[in-house]
């Protein structure tokens, strides 16, 4: 195992080989994190079933240290957004994301979570969870097979491997700001966009008054 750790360029005496490793802090830190990613037990739709399949005997993602699914966001490292994100659900998802402790990752599983998928044109579907929370890995498919999900998780491990304590978000001087929780009004509203919404609806009203027949057409 120490071979994984050893930084090149250091000679280790033969009698200590396999017992001592000379390495960097980053490497140890990332090695421990990458092999104990706890996903949140959180199935949204069809993809959630394939996520469960990835946990069962045939695919078994515990081989990668991920079997501890936590129902509580406070204990999880990874949010697998497994399914269609609806407007009614996104406030809860953002709240759950805010409740997860750093370091945290998001994997968008399937076409719906990545960009709306087959239901994108619908009136109550969010066209991609990345409109609200940052996504680290996208897994395509409808639904992705368990193998595809495993590939996504391994990709996430690779992403963790190259992170460095020096510049990660959660050790920066400024606190990480929570994402404002969207609000369900006549349609889904992002609190950051209130001004924009106001301008848009006012403009729409003016247009409406100018061209009264537009609605009938």
């Amino acid at each position: 195992m120490t071979e994984d750790f050893n930084s090149p360029g250091y000679d280790i005496p033969p009698e200590m080989e396999g017992q001592v490793a000379i390495t960097t802090l980053d490497k140890v830190y990332n090695w421990s994190r990458r092999n104990s990613i706890w996903p949140m037990m959180f199935g949204l739709a069809c993809c959630g079933i394939e996520m469960i399949c990835a946990a069962t005997s045939r695919f078994d993602f515990s081989r990668f240290g991920m079997e501890v699914m936590r129902p509580s966001p406070r204990q999880s490292d990874l949010m697998i957004v497994s399914g269609t994100v609806t407007k009614k659900m996104i406030p809860q998802i953002v709240r759950l994301y805010n409740q997860m402790p750093e370091p945290k990752y998001v994997l968008a599983m399937g076409a719906c979570a990545s960009g709306g998928g087959p239901f994108k044109e619908g009136y109550s579907v969010v066209d991609g969870v990345d409109k609200f929370i940052p996504v680290d890995v996208y897994v395509p498919g409808c639904p992705p097979t368990p193998q595809a999900l495993l590939h996504g998780l391994i990709t996430l491990q690779k992403k963790i491997d190259i992170q460095s304590i020096k510049n990660v978000r959660w050790y920066s001087k400024d606190p990480v700001e929570a994402i404002p929780i969207p609000v369900l009004g006549p349609d889904l509203m992002d609190p950051r966009e209130y001004e924009l919404i106001k301008d848009y609806t006012a403009e729409k009203q003016v247009e409406e008054e100018e061209v009264p027949v537009a609605e009938e057409a």
């Binding site: 994108k120 066209d127 006549p186 349609d187 509203m189 919404i197 106001k198 848009y200 609806t201 009203q205």
Partner: peptide, 23 residues
């Protein structure tokens, strides 16, 4: 991309004269 035709770049629309501050 349907988003490109939408002023908010996402799947939302609001009724005319709607003001979030008064809602």
């Amino acid at each position: 991309r349907s988003e490109d035709n939408n002023p908010f770049n996402k799947n939302v629309d609001y009724p005319e004269g709607f003001d979030p501050a008064l809602w």
